[in-house]
Each structure stands twice: as structure tokens, then as C-alpha cells.
Design a protein around this nucleic acid. Structure first.
Lengths: 236, 236
DNA sequence: CGAATAGTGTCTTTTAGACACTATCGG
DNA sequence: CCGATAGTGTCTAAAAGACACTATTCG
């Protein structure tokens, strides 16, 4: 009879026929008033030269958990260390990768594109999500993009998450515009402002911003972001 | 220069140092007016003899995708072929399993305990979730149970999902009781019934049920379950 | 008929939408 | 002072909670 110690000493993961596992990232930012996603051009087989989501293997040495893998990939591609990061779903089947049965853990991240280190964008580039629909990406990455956008939109209806796409200080009109870009529709001004202010997700500062015509008050996040849900979703 | 075909012919997953990957299942049912979860006693190292969530490895041969693995585990343990099944989250880190860096994809399932094939419950048993909190489970399974319950509760606030725990026909009082068991609190009768009926998630049948005193009308699900969200969550 | 369980009528509260209105600034 | 953008006042609408009430059945 084996003890647990003897069992573990003999244990070799490679005797098992386990699937390939990767982490893929949907990294979103607003550029020129459009929702963009970061794509890299693949430099190796399979699907060499096709566009794909940034991602790759978990490093058993470097990463203490899956989120650390995601953060490492994010930092490598954008230079951004902290940002909103959320696990979307794990997708795995026999056909998504020609190397065989594979699983990917999909994350999405929201970043203020001003914070991106442009030197790192060597083989990667921003693409408006409307255009990505028509580009055949590597593997099943068109599907992954769809799932990430769906989650982002759903969160946008219930939370103040899209604040993560803006700098520290912003006007409520800017915030509303971001929401409208993500949801691809107009929102009523009065409800939007009331919602954000009454729920206390934003706080007025004493600064204002001249944006051409009348100056607009600058707001900042009050920090309740990651788990705050509005009592009702945005409707119309 | 390698072609994609040459690359794939040479490809051997075992040259990569990838983490172990498993699927774990939180299988819930209502027994004696309590929310129960199915646990098995582990028969092999590591954590031999401890209680754990049912689960195991993806079979590259048997399973065409991850959900198929989950369904296969569910059927093996309970005999139930179809039921509500939802992916919760993937958890992976260097410390959760003594065999090394490992990832588990956590699912939860809701089943009507009457449909369970009791012969299959050899080394597995139902445990009220309140008791499970105080039992040290194998690996990080106490945490997994917590995450599965959290997701179930959150869905219960927004959807009619708990219907999956009841037989075909049920009274609205029975349905409300299930909700109250899951949320561990009382709900106002009037709002609950109005909510279910007005949203059209249940449909009255012409049958009734004698449950001691006044007979209660039997209802059935209208089928809109998997993606229907009420306009507002349950509040009080 | 009384106790217990099923089920309703209706008022208030919360938060969303509609929409007309006012405020401020540059030119 | 005009046009454009920022921002508000206030009515209505939808769906939740409060709570007292009625309905049905068994014994």
C-alpha cells in the first residue's frame, strides 16, 4: 500500500494524456471613439501570420495562479501593470487547435489606451471590434472575441465598469459616450447622470474641463467598481 | 522553414511543462427541505479518504468538449443525463494540489433528487451545505463549494433557475420554498407569485394538488430558463 | 366553524424613461 | 446674442415591498 508521500514521489504528469492549456486575453480600449481590441500577428505555427488574441501558456515557474498568467501577458503586450481584469470562460474541445484537444481560459481587460507603452506594440495592433468580425482570426478566436464582448456589454448594463477605460478624471458626458460606444446605442442623458450620481459610483471634483463650449465638471471614480451592481440594468 | 504540416507532425505536447487539468462538479439537490451537495470519498492519493467534489480528468477520447466531460461525470455519479449545468470558473495555482500546478474547471448542476439512480451512490453521499462548511474537504474544495453556492445564489436573485430542482409540476408555494432554502431567507409571497406569473416563466396547469389543507394549483415551467433574466433582482 | 394553507387587492417605494426646460461659454 | 454643449425639473411607467384581506379545504 502506497503512502501519500510515496505516491507523490512517483507522480509524473506526463504519463497522463492531458489536453493543452492556454490563457487568451481580450484587451479592450477606446481609440478614436471606437471600441478596439488588441490583436497580435502569430509568429509561429499553427495559424502562422494570422491575427490572434494575445495569450499563451501558463508558466509554472513565473505564475502563482491563472490571474498572474493573464496579468503577465497583459503587461508584456501593453506595459500596463494594473487594470480591470475578469475571467470570462474556459473553452475546450477536440477541434479548436490542430495540435489536439485544447483548453483556453479567456480573460478580458479594460485599459486606458493613453497608458499603453507604444514601444511594446511591435507585432500587435488595435482593431475596432466592428472590423474584427470580418477578419478570420487564428483558431476559434473570432468566437472568443464575441464572448468577451458579450460579457463586457452585459457588465456595462449592470455596473459602472467602463470607467476603467477612462483616465482618473472625466466628465459625465465622456463617461456616457464610453457606455454608448460599448453598447452601440444612445442612452438618455438624464437617467444616465442620475444613475451614476445617486448610486455614488462617481464623485464630483472641484475641477472643470473646457471642451469647446460650456465647461463640464470633472468627476472621479469613488472606487466601488469591481462588485457594485446597480439595482436595475440600463433599459432603453 | 517548417510548413504547418511538418510542425504539427513533430508536435509533442509532452515536451511542454503544462499544468494538470481537471473538471470538478458542484451537484446540488434539495433533500429534506435543505440544499444538499453531492460529495464522494476519495479512493486514491492524494487526500485519500477525504470527501471531495465529484470530478476528474478530461478524456480526450470520450469528450468532445469540456461540457461533455462535466455531463459524463454527472451521469456517472447520479445517473442523470440532462439537467441544468453551468460553468462557474476555472481555478488554477501552484498550491491547490500536491501533485503540482493544477487547474480545475468548476461546474455546477441542479437536479431533482427523485431522478437520481440510488444504486450509483456507492461511495458518494448528499450533504447539507451548512454542514459542508465545517468538514475539511480534499484540496481546495471548500473554496470551490463556496464559489458554486455563490453563483447559484446570485442566479437565484435574477432568474427562475431553481425550477430545475423541482419535478415537472409544482405549486408556487413549493417553488417559493426552494428559493427560500437557497437564499436562506423568507421572501414576500405576493411579489414572488406576481414576479413568476407576470414574467411568464411559469404556466398554470388545470391540475391541483392536495397538500393537507387548501389545494394548490400546479404550475409548469414555460421553458424560458437558461437565459431569462427578470428586469430586477429579488430584493428583500 | 376554526385552523391552516393558498392566494389577492391595493397602496407605497424605488428607479427608470420622456421631454421640455435652463445654464454657461466662445465667438 | 446665437449656437452648441452641459445639465436639471418634473411627470409618468414598471416592478418591487408592505400588509391587510379573502378563499378553500380538512377535521
Amino acid at each position: 500500500m502506497l503512502t501519500e508521500k510515496q505516491f507523490l514521489d512517483d507522480y509524473d504528469i506526463h504519463q497522463y494524456n492531458i489536453p493543452l492549456i492556454t490563457v487568451d486575453m481580450g484587451i479592450f480600449s477606446i481609440i478614436d471613439q471606437q471600441l478596439n481590441i488588441l490583436l497580435i500577428q502569430r509568429e509561429s505555427h499553427p495559424d502562422k501570420t494570422k491575427l490572434a488574441l494575445p495569450g499563451g501558456f501558463i508558466s509554472k515557474d513565473k505564475d502563482k495562479n491563472i490571474e498572474a498568467t493573464a496579468l503577465r501577458k497583459l503587461k508584456k503586450k501593453t506595459g500596463v501593470k494594473l487594470s480591470y481584469l475578469e475571467q470570462v470562460e474556459s473553452i475546450g474541445n477536440a477541434t479548436r487547435d490542430p495540435r489536439g484537444w485544447s483548453v483556453t481560459i479567456l480573460y478580458f481587460a479594460l485599459i486606458d489606451s493613453n497608458k499603453v507603452n507604444k514601444k511594446l506594440l511591435q507585432n500587435s495592433s488595435w482593431h475596432p471590434i466592428d472590423e474584427v468580425k470580418h477578419i478570420p482570426l487564428a483558431f476559434d478566436h473570432n468566437l472568443l472575441v464575441k464572448k468577451a464582448i458579450k460579457r463586457l456589454r452585459s457588465k456595462t448594463l449592470y455596473t459602472a465598469l467602463p470607467m476603467a477605460l477612462l483616465p482618473e478624471r472625466f466628465t459625465l458626458t465622456e463617461l456616457q459616450t464610453i457606455f454608448e460606444i460599448i453598447l452601440a446605442r444612445k442612452l438618455p442623458v438624464k437617467s444616465f447622470r442620475r444613475r451614476m450620481i445617486d448610486a455614488g459610483v462617481v464623485e464630483a471634483t472641484d475641477e472643470s474641463k473646457i471642451s469647446g463650449k460650456r465647461t463640464a465638471k470633472l468627476y472621479k471614480s469613488t472606487g466601488i467598481k469591481k462588485d457594485f451592481y446597480f439595482p436595475r440594468p440600463l433599459q432603453k
